[in-house]
């Protein structure tokens, strides 16, 4: 999950490999996409949620996402954020951690952030937040192998 336009859908598409609509219409990932991915030798269900900024649900999309979180028994949340807007996005990350979720933070669009002159120390960020942090470029696939590995390490065996 993640805020609108962070590249969730692109990443989802990369992870599952199944055909998924990659949409960039501001805030239009209205429907929830599901796909299967084989990560670390296990089959994992991946859910692409509508975009949201906060757990305090205001929009319809945010409500849908929160309901998903509460009702699906999610093992691991991959929180995708636009590395360019890290500070704004961390609000949700903190809320997720606070809520007791297992969270992996994905800093997407690292290339664009770098072009803007933002260097993000992922290791330091991981230590500060006490969760795994992975940097990716969903459009090129950079960092995806590492993300898969981190997901494999953090997804509990079902049950």
């Amino acid at each position: 999950m993640g805020s609108p336009n962070a590249g969730k859908s692109a990443l989802f598409h990369r992870l599952t490999g199944t055909y998924v609509t990659v949409s960039n219409y501001p805030g239009t990932t209205v429907e929830v996409s599901r796909g299967r991915a084989v990560i670390g030798g296990r089959e994992v269900e991946v859910i692409d949620t509508p975009g949201l900024y906060s757990l305090l649900a205001i929009t319809e999309e945010e409500k849908v996402t929160r309901r998903l979180l509460l009702e699906e028994g999610v093992d691991l949340i991959v929180h995708v954020v636009d590395a360019k807007n890290l500070e704004r996005s961390l609000h949700l990350t903190l809320q997720l951690i606070e809520a007791g979720m297992r969270v992996v933070l994905v800093l997407n669009m690292l290339d664009e952030a770098a072009r803007l002159g933002l260097t993000i120390d992922t290791a330091r960020l991981a230590r500060e937040l006490n969760i795994p942090v992975v940097g990716t470029v969903a459009t090129t696939g950079e960092g995806l192998d590492l993300l898969r590995q981190v997901i494999a390490e953090n997804v509990r065996v079902a049950g």
Binding site: A10, Y19, T21, V22, S23, N24, T139
Partner: peptide, 9 residues
């Protein structure tokens, strides 16, 4: 700058 698939276009 939007990235999209041929089917979406």
């Amino acid at each position: 700058g939007t990235v999209f698939t041929e089917a979406e276009a």
